[in-house]
Amino acid sequence: MNIFRLLGDLSHLLAIIILLLKIWNSRSCAGISGRSQFLFAIVFTARYLDLFFTFISLYNTVMKIVFLATSYGTLYLMYIKFKATYDSNHDTFRIEFLILPAIALALLINEEFTVIEILWTFSIYLESVAILPQLFMVSKTGEAESITSHYLFALGSYRALYILNWIYRWFLTEKLNAIAIVAGIVQTILYCDFFYLYLTKVLKGKKLQLPA
């Protein structure tokens, strides 16, 4: 564990908590893409299956349980409790165009052809594009509440911090996973134009407007 990975995990946890609080306090999931949240739940489910038979550390186990619980909790709030506020008209990104290629790629490019490794690889590929429905929805609605942009900033920062963690581990000549690194770079690049808008607009108190 290093400071970059710890900050990355905490940024990820912060993003999920910001989203849960936003939905719970405003009792609304307006502007939030349920499809992206659904993809995140798939990512965590496929990746954390080893929860039950490998123990890496208490931190690792606790965080996996928290991420699984909060992602399914968010789905519950969006699709059941506050279903009436879910904006399905703007949440229309075809997620099968993300899931199917991730499955195909995981079967083709992986480190070991075992069920656990294929699922882990699938979760890495899917996570790199899982935010697209949310970014698509923000560009369709043309704007996002500031709390949603804080959520996106924390979520985008998590994998950017992981890139710093991989650089740090490279200097320590620790084992690295090329698949996770390439996918993590792609994932972070997808946030770049949002990061630009966030840093130049939202932090100056303006609304976040994505070019439609």
Binding site: M63, E117, A180
Partner: peptide
């Protein structure tokens, strides 16, 4: 310390 395919990152 980890076998080749144990993923220690979240």
């Amino acid at each position: 310390q980890y076998e080749q395919h144990e993923h220690d990152e979240l």
